[in-house]
């Protein structure tokens, strides 16, 4: 469950000779393009990532427009006929009315629970909450990890020692354990507070990565040049080093979000996450666990949405890694190579 804190996967690195050789071809391909354009172009070639992006967007759109959402006291209505909190009369014993093969949606596509709440509305509300927690945890975790890693790697010495020992201490406690303790304390204050607190414990892995990146980047010539030109530390960190480390940060922020949704649902399942009357996908699963043998649909749909979201985010992370790391190129398959050879000789 603590997958937010894993170190980067080692990527296959071609030898230097190969790289200069390949660079001639690779450079032609990206000639005249900005960094952003190159990344976008490479990303759009990763089929899994693009599909995941579309699916995730569809889930977000569905979750927020269908049942509407609440900001403070302001309630935005949605197009779905039921509310997540209201109980209506049981129809057909709460069985789901969704029938994909006959294109029938029906009144309660995901069914109803024993008191008559529409599960579609409940799951949509849970998805909203889980998505929100995922995004907040991702942002807070990324922010803290980047700041701590950057300061540590840039200043080295005592600052680095202190911050890294602190990171070691936090990393010793499994995320789900410290998350449970903190979640029990603040869970009652609502989902956003829970997300803030979770964000405060998942930054450790990213901090180590960013530190390593900064340690190597700060020795490069362009940093010396900036320093000689009289740039202040802040400027060097934010304008010179950080843009070069953005790949590591973005990729790991994505993976952090994928881990965050699993941590949140796991904690809510244990009862230390989101508390009633708020709901989240993990909480729905937890509430309906005992009803599995009689009403399995209460259990299938929230689980399905957890997996769909986590899978999409993981694939997007994979696509971003490919896009930001030009060393990792996809080799053409043997068949394609053979075809190219034949075409060349013919």
């Amino acid at each position: 469950m603590t997958r937010g804190t894993r170190p980067p996967m080692p990527e296959p690195a071609p030898s230097i000779a190969e790289e200069t050789n390949e660079n001639a071809i690779a450079l032609k391909e990206v000639e005249g393009l900005s960094q952003g354009q190159i990344v976008r172009r490479r990303f759009s070639r990763h089929r899994g990532a693009v599909i995941s992006m579309i699916v995730l967007a569809a889930i977000v759109l569905l979750a927020f427009t269908s049942v509407g959402f609440v900001i403070g006291d302001w309630r935005v209505p949605g197009w779905w006929q039921y509310d997540w909190a209201e109980a209506v009369a049981l129809e057909n014993n709460g069985l789901p009315t969704l029938d994909v093969f006959h294109f029938v949606v029906g009144n309660h596509p995901f069914g109803q629970d024993e008191i008559g709440r529409d599960i579609f509305a409940v799951v949509m509300r849970g998805t909203q909450q889980s998505l929100m927690i995922m995004v907040i945890v991702g942002f807070i975790g990324t922010f803290l990890g980047t700041v701590i890693g950057a300061i540590s790697g840039y200043y080295r010495g005592v600052v680095d020692g202190t911050l890294m020992r602190f990171t070691d201490i936090v990393i010793t406690i499994p995320v789900i354990v410290i998350g449970a303790v903190l979640g029990r304390t603040v869970g009652i204050a609502g989902a956003p507070v829970l997300a803030l607190v979770l964000g405060a414990v998942v930054w450790t892995g990213l901090a180590r990565l960013v530190r390593a990146e900064f340690l190597s980047l700060r020795e490069r010539e362009f940093v010396d040049a900036a320093r000689v030109a009289g740039a202040r530390d802040g400027r060097i960190i934010f304008r010179h080093i950080l843009p070069n480390a953005i790949g590591v940060i973005v990729v790991n922020a994505t993976l952090l979000m994928a881990a965050a949704i699993l941590i949140e649902t796991g904690l809510s399942f244990l009862g230390y996450g989101v508390q009633s009357p708020d709901t989240s996908l993990g909480k729905i699963v937890s509430e309906n666990q005992v009803a599995f043998s009689t009403r399995p649909w209460l259990f299938w749909w929230p689980g399905f949405f957890i997996i769909a979201i986590a899978l999409c985010v993981n694939f997007i992370g994979d696509g971003l890694r490919d896009a930001f790391d030009p060393r990792q190129k996809r080799m053409p398959s043997l068949r394609a190579l053979a075809k190219a050879k034949q075409g060349g000789s013919a």
């Binding site: 699993l262 796991g266 399942f269 937890s286 957890i306 986590a310």
Partner: peptide, 18 residues
């Protein structure tokens, strides 16, 4: 393996049990 990465463990556990 991507799918396994994304599985909530409690959900899998309940499924295995059932």
């Amino acid at each position: 393996s991507f799918l396994f990465f994304s599985l909530p463990i409690f959900w899998v556990a309940v499924l295995l049990k059932q």
